[in-house]
Structures are given as C-alpha cells and as structure tokens.
Write a protein that binds this DNA or RNA. Structure first.
Length: 472
DNA sequence: ATGTAC
C-alpha cells in the first residue's frame, strides 16, 4: 500500500490513510520498520465514525483489532468506546518503589538470590497459587480501589496519593451484569503477578545529568536500588473483556454496524452496551491498581525479611497503559483510549495527581528482560499526542516465532549469566520464559530516542536490571 | 493478557 506521508520533522509523521490521518511518532529508522499491516489496522480503526484523533507511539505493533501503541480519542457526547482499543489486559500498568539502598548493597549475588526467594514467598508467581490475603474482599476492591483495602495493607498515606488514580468512580450497579463465576476466579488472585510480560524487577538508577534537580525532588539518587512492577487486572479484567467483546459484537450485528476487521469491537458511549463496558472497565482498573499495590506490599515484606523490619520502600508512582479515560481536551470531555500507551503529563498540567502537580508525574517505561527501563517526565509538546508516550520496547516477533528462532544459550548470554553483573532470574530454567527474551522486542533505546526526539517526554533516569522475577 | 477454548 502506498500512502501519502507528511513529515512534520522532529520524529513526527502524518500518514494519510483511506479513512483519515494517523499520526506516528518515531525516529526515521523505527518509522521505516513499520509493516503495512499496522497501517491497515489504523485505517480500519479510522472507519469508526467521528474519531477526533489517532496516533502511534514508536513501539506500535500488531494487536487484536487495534495495534498496541495506539492513542485514539472520541468526544464523550457522540463517540464510541472500544474494548479492542483498550486491550485485553484492562488496567495493565507499571509501578515503581524506591529504597534507600545503593547498588553496591546488593551486588553480592547471594543477597540478590535471597531477595528473589523472599519476594517469591510473598508474591505468588505460579498461575494457580492464591495470594494469602483471604481477609480482603475483592468486591470492596473493584468498587473502591485502594480505598477498599483494609487499613492494615496501606503502609502510609503516600501509597494512596502517589498513583495515577486510587479509586475509579463508576456506577456500581453495573456489577450485576457480570457472570457470578468472575468473583470465584478473581478472589485469591489479588497481589499475584500473572504471566507473559509481567514481572518484578530490581534495578539501579543512572540519573540523566540534565534532570538532577527533578530527580532529587522525586527522591531519586544515582545508583539507587528501585523495584519496578508490571502487572494487570488478572482474571477480573480478562473476564470483563471477554464477556463484553461477545456482547458488543452481537450488538454491532443487531445494529448493522460492520468493519472489515471482525475483531474490532466498539459501541456508542451513550448506548446501554457502551455504558456497561465502560463502567465494568473501571471496576477492572480498580482491581489492577490494587493488585499492583498488593504485589508491592509483598515486595516490601520481602525486603524487610532480608534487610530488617525498619526497611521502607516508598511508592514513586503507579500508572496504566491499557485503558480509556475521560479527559478534558480542547474544552470538551473526551474519551482517550490508550492501548499500550502511557500518559506522560507535563509540569503544572491540571490532570496531574496533586502530589505531582508542580513537576509532572514519573512516566514509567519498562524495557525488555535484561535491557534498561526508563523513568521519564512529559513535556508540553506532548499535547499533540494527547500526552501519550510509549509503553515499553514493543514486540517485534510473536511468541512462537521467538521460540523457534532464539536458543536458551543466546538468552543466557543477553542476561550475562555467570558474570558478576548477571541479571538474576527466579526461574531455574529460562526455557519456559524464552518468549520474553530481549530478541523478541524492539531496541528500547531506539524507542526512547524516538519519544525524546519527538519532544513528547524527557528521560529522568535509566533503570538497569539486577534481578527479575517472572511468573508462569 | 487469561483459573485460556464457539
């Protein structure tokens, strides 16, 4: 397919497709690597009426119905909501906790092994292992988010304030639409990691010299040990997504609405079906943020076991990259879908959570296993992409293709196994998580270069991996 | 992604 491309400069391209224009933020190298399939998908998404804006971040790649890396906006009054443009793992996101430790404190491999073992004791990493928080009623959690947790699981006020949202408000009456077994499936999963690309990583920081002052304000220092968590809404969000893909698909058939891609599902925001999905999506966001909170609670317990009961692991921030949020833009309420896209608000922006109003909030971007992650901050210019930046490196090949192509030996080499700087992993064998090797992902440094070059955000700190806990 | 699957 040939498309007219407008190059705006500064890693910003506008691609004219059959049904509207797609904005792409990528450096020339990444831009050239996009396959035509991602443009076909964007064009199918642009067929949905009254789209206000659609953009790709540089980590964009093919997903179900809609590419991962999409920001898509409609007006609340005449727009649509789409489970396909939210993504299957509703509320999937990132969280970072800081420590007072320096990397030299955990350079000893025995210490890092002890931390991995302790974390696995407090955070279930096997699919069917329940968390031991039987005293938490998940119905309180899905209704009131972090405010639904018993006080004994909230170490201090900061854990409620340094998050993108602690309590997503919605009409709880919609919970009656859910199948009863969702409760049984999700109960016991709170505080568990999940599998796939989810992880807990122990990292050390390399501060960007140009943002030392901001880093200090955020409590960050060079060489600091931090913990990065990537997880989502587990069975709760998966069941909401699956159920409403079915329901909305049937509604589209009844309404006579169709799209060339049968996997692209959507409904008017004002319709009963759209309202039901939207409200139940918020229940999943409450589960997701609470899940990461409880994982972090377990991680703090583990650090206390290794370093003493006085150990504190303050939360830096928690934010999501799979959701649709009502936001005010251009003076109007709009529904901003971010599927594999991270909000990065600039300093002073009114949408910032109060704790980060002055500085802008930390935007947490994971790399692939064994490569760097990043802590960034949004810029004013990010407005052009509705303040969305990348959500990570972005896959470059499928799980199956990766397993056929990469060997366990190559994976071990990329983790520097055997050396002092080895990225230690909880799994005895890397065979089971081979599809998560760095060779399956784009080069995260190129992705970050694209975002910085497009003036969407700046790097505050680079996070280098020292130990990783993966689920199965 | 998912206590996977019309």
């Amino acid at each position: 397919m040939d498309h007219k491309i407008i190059a705006h400069g500064n890693n910003h391209y506008e691609v004219e497709l059959g049904h509207g224009n797609l904005h792409v933020y990528a450096n020339p190298e990444i831009f050239q690597s996009f396959e035509s399939r991602v443009y076909e998908m964007a064009d199918n998404n642009l067929r949905i009426p009254r789209n206000v804006y659609m953009g790709y971040t540089p980590d964009a790649h093919v997903g179900v119905g809609t590419c991962i890396g999409t920001t898509a906006v409609w007006n609340m009054k005449d727009g649509i909501v789409s489970p396909s443009i939210v993504g299957v793992d509703i509320g999937c996101g990132m969280r970072v906790h800081t420590t007072s430790l320096h990397r030299s404190d955990i350079q000893d491999k025995a210490v890092r092994r002890a931390l991995i073992t302790a974390i696995e004791k407090y955070v279930p990493t096997n699919e069917r292992t329940n968390s031991h928080y039987a005293d938490i009623d998940i119905m309180n959690v899905v209704q009131y988010g972090l405010k639904g947790l018993p006080a004994s699981y909230v170490p201090n006020e900061r854990w409620l304030t340094h998050v993108e949202e602690s309590d997503f408000q919605y009409d709880h009456a919609f919970l009656e639409h859910l199948p009863p077994k969702i409760r049984k499936n999700a109960q016991g999963q709170l505080g568990s990691l999940g599998s796939g690309n989810h992880f807990i990583e122990i990292q050390y920081l390399e501060l960007n010299e140009e943002h030392q002052e901001l880093a200090a304000k955020w409590g960050l220092f060079d060489g600091q040990v931090v913990v990065m968590i990537h997880s989502g809404s587990r069975a709760w969000g998966a069941m909401v997504g699956r159920e409403y893909n079915k329901v909305l698909k049937e509604s589209m058939r009844l309404w006579g609405v169709s799209n060339p891609d049968p996997n692209l599902i959507y409904a008017p925001i004002v319709s009963q079906e759209g309202q039901t999905y939207l409200n139940l999506m918020y229940s999943s966001l409450n589960f997701a943020v609470s899940n990461r909170h409880m994982i972090a609670f377990g991680v703090q317990e583990a650090f206390r076991e290794v370093f003493g009961s006085g150990m504190e692991t303050p939360v830096l921030y928690d934010l999501m990259h799979n959701y649709a949020l009502k936001e005010f833009h251009r003076g109007q309420p709009m529904l901003v879908h971010r599927k594999g896209a991270t909000r990065a608000l600039p300093p002073k922006h009114f949408l910032n959570t109060p704790a980060y109003k002055e500085t802008g909030h930390p935007a947490l971007i994971p790399g692939s296993m064994g490569t760097s992650s990043y802590i960034m901050v949004g810029r004013e210019e990010g407005l052009k992409n509705f303040y969305s930046i990348c959500h990570g490196a972005g896959r470059t090949r499928s799980r199956r293709a990766t397993k056929e192509m990469v060997t366990v030996d190559q994976f071990e080499q990329s983790l520097k196994v055997g050396s002092e700087d080895e990225v230690m992993v909880n799994h005895r064998s890397l065979e089971t998580i081979l599809d998560e090797c760095p060779q399956a992902y784009k080069d995260v440094d190129q992705i970050i270069d694209s975002v910085v070059g497009a003036s969407l955000a700046d790097v505050v700190a680079k996070c280098k991996p020292m130990a990783v806990i993966k689920g199965i």
